[in-house]
C-alpha cells in the first residue's frame, strides 16, 4: 500500500478531464492538494434507459455498465501528485449494485462512493454495501431520513461523509442544500468522519486548503474536525478503500 500525503481532494469530476485537465491538476497541486481522486458517476436512472434501449435493439454482447477508470497520465511538474480513481454510484434500489459489483471494471477503482436516492437505498448502504464514501446530490433535498443510529453504524464501518464546496460556490440552491446537509450531519452525528471535497467542474472553483478548513467551521465542524476533513480523514478513506479492494480481490479468487 503506497503512502498518500498532503491535502486530499476526493471529488475532481470527470468533466475536468475534457477541459484541460493538466492545468487543473497543476493548480490543485500548487494550492496544496497532493492526493486527488477523479470521480466518475454511475446514475441508475440514466442506466435504466440504456438497458431498456439495449433490450429493444436486442444487443447480444453484454456491455460493462461500469465505465473503465480514466487513466490519468503523470503530469509534468507534478510528479508528486497522486491521482486515484473514484466511482460514485447513485441508486434507488439494490438490484443495480449486484450487477455493478460483478463488473470487471468495478475492481479497478480505488474508492467507491454511495449516493443513495431513496430510503431503501439508504438502508442498504448502511447495512450491506461496502462503500468508502457516503455522498449526496446537492441539487435536491435528500429523499431519505437520517437517523443517529444509522449514522454511527456507517462510522463504525469506516464510511466517511462527503460535503462538497464547489457546487456551493456556483449555485445558491445547491449552497443551501449543502449547508443543510452539513448541519444535519452535525445534529445527528456530531460531524464525525466528515471529508470535504471540491466537486469542481472548472478551475475557477478551486480554493486553497486553508480556505476549505475555514469553510468547515461554517459547516458546523470544530477546529480539529475541519482540519481532519481534508487531512487525516482523507488518509483514512484511502486506507479503507485499499483494504476493501484487497478483500474483494481475495474473495473473488
Amino acid at each position: 500500500m503506497e503512502s498518500v500525503k498532503g491535502y486530499f481532494d476526493y471529488n475532481v469530476t470527470d468533466k475536468c478531464i475534457s477541459n484541460n485537465f493538466e492545468n487543473i491538476a497543476k493548480q490543485l497541486y500548487d494550492f496544496g492538494y497532493h492526493t486527488i481522486a477523479i470521480n466518475q458517476t454511475i446514475d441508475e436512472s440514466l442506466l435504466e434507459e440504456s438497458i431498456s434501449e439495449g433490450k429493444k435493439k436486442k444487443k447480444i454482447e453484454r456491455q460493462d455498465i461500469v465505465p473503465s477508470p480514466i487513466d490519468a497520465k503523470i503530469i509534468k511538474g507534478c510528479d508528486k501528485l497522486k491521482i486515484l480513481n473514484r466511482l460514485t454510484i447513485s441508486f434507488t434500489t439494490q438490484d443495480i449494485i449486484n450487477r455493478i459489483i460483478k463488473s470487471p471494471n468495478y475492481r479497478k477503482y480505488h474508492i467507491i462512493a454511495a449516493q443513495p436516492e431513496s430510503q431503501q437505498a439508504f438502508q442498504f448502504t448502511c447495512t450491506n454495501f461496502e462503500a468508502d464514501i457516503f455522498t449526496f446530490n446537492p441539487s435536491t433535498k435528500p429523499n431519505y431520513k437520517m437517523q443517529r443510529k444509522l449514522y454511527y453504524l456507517l462510522v463504525e464501518r469506516g464510511v466517511h461523509f462527503e460535503i462538497m464546496y464547489g457546487p456551493a460556490i456556483e449555485d445558491s440552491t445547491k449552497r443551501k442544500n449543502i449547508i443543510a446537509t452539513a448541519h444535519m450531519y452535525h445534529s445527528f452525528g456530531k460531524s464525525r468522519n466528515i471529508i470535504i471535497s471540491s466537486g469542481i467542474t472548472n478551475s475557477f472553483l478551486i480554493r486553497n486548503p486553508y480556505d476549505v478548513i475555514n469553510l468547515g467551521l461554517l459547516f458546523g465542524l470544530s477546529d480539529g474536525q475541519a482540519k481532519d476533513a481534508i487531512q487525516n480523514n482523507g488518509r483514512n478513506v484511502y486506507m479503507h478503500g485499499s483494504t476493501v479492494l484487497e478483500f474483494v480481490c481475495w474473495k473473488l479468487y
Binding site: H186, S187, K190, D223
Partner: peptide, 13 residues
C-alpha cells in the same frame, strides 16, 4: 437536538 453554530464563529487562537 444538537444545533451547529451559525453566527458566532471563533477565529483561530
Amino acid at each position: 437536538m444538537l444545533s451547529p453554530e451559525i453566527w458566532n464563529f471563533k477565529a483561530p487562537d
